[in-house]
Structure formats: structure tokens, C-alpha cells
Amino acid sequence: MERSEDAAEAGMSNRWPEILVALFLFAIGVIVVSDSIRVGTGWEEGEGPRAGYFPFYIGSILLISSGWILIGALARIRKPQPQFATWEELRSVMQMLVPLSIYIVAVVFLGLYVSSFVLIAYFMKVHGKFGVIGTVLTSVGVPLAAFMLFERWFLVPLPKGPLELMLGL
């Protein structure tokens, strides 16, 4: 989809995402190379490569390739860019990404069951416009089914929070 910036729908261009992702990869490359140097990158006589030998070259490839992408992106910085996504699309994505991130944080503190109930109920009620009965049945049913399946049947403990503790589960 090589739409140019001045296409019909307004949106974000590839300019900054491209640069940021390349910078991120470059940073990973720096970490990999520096840690490899710490553990030794040599080729020991009679023993072959040391612990950092392969990671060092892999990190270097990462540095070169992400650097290449970065230079390319910077060279094009003033030129028109292909569109990353329209604002409308990004807004939609955020409608998922924000609750998703909150959900993950909630799993850490409240446990998986309560968070899952809230997540499903939120989507069904706010976005799906489902009735109260359907919403409650699904949002309680899914965590409950997971509980029966994992904790009771397969004996796999899932993350729990204060509520489960209070109930003595």
C-alpha cells in the first residue's frame, strides 16, 4: 500500500515509525555487541569460538542492517512518505492497545481471572453493545471455564490475586 501522504485520507506517515524502529534495533545491536565483548569474542585455539563469538557478529549484522535502514529513512526524511496508517485506523488500534495494556498490568496485580472478566465485559458492553445477560454470561463464563480447565482439571496454576486468596482458592 504505497499511498503518499497527500492521499485522500489523512494519517500518520511512515517517517517516524520507521526511524524509531530502526533506532530500537540499533540499540539492541549495541547491547548485544557490548555484552559479547564482555564475555569474550575470540576463537580459542583448540576449543573453537567463545561465548561471545557468534553474538558479536550477529550484533554487528544487526548494527549494520538497522544503521542502513536508519540512514535510508533519514535521507528520505524531507520527501513524501508512504502512509503508516490513517488517523481513523490508529484510533481503532488504540481502542484495543490501551485496554490490552491495562489488562496486562491488571493481570500482574489482580490475577488473571478478575482481569479477564473485566476485559471481556468491557468490550462486549462498550463496543459490542450486547445486553447485560449475554455480557455477564460470557465474561464470567470464560474465566470460570479457564479456572475449571486449568486449575481443577489440568492442575496448572494461573496467576491469582487478592480475590482468589480471599475465597481461599
Binding site: V108, F109, L110, G111, P159, K160, G161, P162, L165, M166
Partner: peptide
């Protein structure tokens, strides 16, 4: 288990 969970667990124990 979470920090809070651990704390609560200890209290319970």
C-alpha cells in the same frame, strides 16, 4: 503470585 497476593498470603498464614 503478585506482591499484594504474597503479602496477603503471609498475613493469612
Amino acid at each position: 503470585m503478585t506482591k499484594f497476593g504474597k503479602w496477603a498470603g503471609r498475613a493469612l498464614v
